[in-house]
């Protein structure tokens, strides 16, 4: 029996003017699995991630979240049309996004950041949202920082709050866009260990990363992107351990030596 993937990407293309960043990318992410995307900068991995929740509008191709088309839908005459923003926003709640730059809202406390979307987007009562927010902060081990402002936290703590904020919208999958790339090495581990725990809990995740050891340990599948195409994909021991493609070997050699 064919199980519906949590996220299905079909022949996704994206141009910025004449520049073709994604040239037809297809893959599935099954519920509870972790997919890591690796590749050199400019290979299109961040753009791909941003297309999935429509922070970038794909030029063509389809994205399905639990079988539901994201961003586009066919009208009565079968023509593909961009969904209105209100529908895109509804779909976005199904995807929690964590950014390289954390992007916490500095005028709100840590708890304020986490409960904002549950209250304003999910329509929860404040009491429910606070209970959920505290639970999410506990998952990232920051319960004691709930009343602080983001400016008072370290980079690693800010990124963990950002993870809690994304978890609080109760998404079907989490998207991580280089979550440790702007952190000092000693702060990277605390973020990766939280992500490891999420993966262990069965959270569906797509992770754009340069942390090869993490990708190897946590991922079910690894995609290697090159020039807007998936050059190689497979289980981590294959892609990271014995890559078939020459480009992937070259790319990895920079990380392993």
């Amino acid at each position: 029996m064919d199980v519906m993937p949590a996220i299905r990407v079909v022949d996704l293309r994206k141009n910025f003017g004449a520049l073709e960043v994604l040239k037809g990318v297809s893959f599935d992410v099954h519920t509870g699995s972790v997919v890591s995307m690796i590749g050199a900068s400019g290979s299109g991995k961040s753009t791909l991630l941003r297309c999935i929740n429509f922070l970038e509008t794909p030029s063509s191709g389809d994205i399905f979240i639990d079988g539901e088309p994201m961003g586009f839908r066919s009208d009565a005459s079968g023509q593909r049309r961009l969904r209105p923003l209100s529908e895109v926003n509804l779909m976005r709640r199904e995807l929690g996004m964590v950014f390289q730059q954390f992007n916490l809202w500095p005028h709100m406390t840590v708890l304020g950041n986490v409960i904002e979307a549950p209250i304003r987007v999910r329509g929860m009562s404040r009491k429910q949202a606070v209970a959920l927010g505290e639970e999410c902060l506990a998952r990232v081990h920051l319960s004691e920082k709930a009343r602080e402002y983001p400016a008072r936290l370290s980079g690693g703590q800010q990124q963990r709050v950002a993870i809690a904020r994304a978890l609080a919208i109760q998404p079907k999958a989490m998207l991580f866009d280089e979550p440790t790339s702007s952190l000092d090495p000693e702060l990277t581990d605390e973020v990766l260990s939280v992500m490891r725990e999420l993966a262990g809990d069965g959270t569906t995740m797509i992770v754009v990363t340069h942390e090869m050891a993490f990708a190897r340990e946590v991922s079910d599948r690894v995609l290697f992107l090159h020039n807007g195409l998936i050059e190689e994909e497979g289980p981590p021991e294959q892609v990271l351990g014995a890559p078939k493609s020459e480009r992937c070997r070259q790319f990895l050699s920079k990380y392993l030596h």
Partner: peptide, 26 residues
Amino acid sequence: PVGHVEAARACGMADRLILRRIILPQ
């Protein structure tokens, strides 16, 4: 920073809500 707005969009917040809750208070 544009990232603050993107983070709000990624949470499913509509533009008006983003203006009122994220942009104007800052």
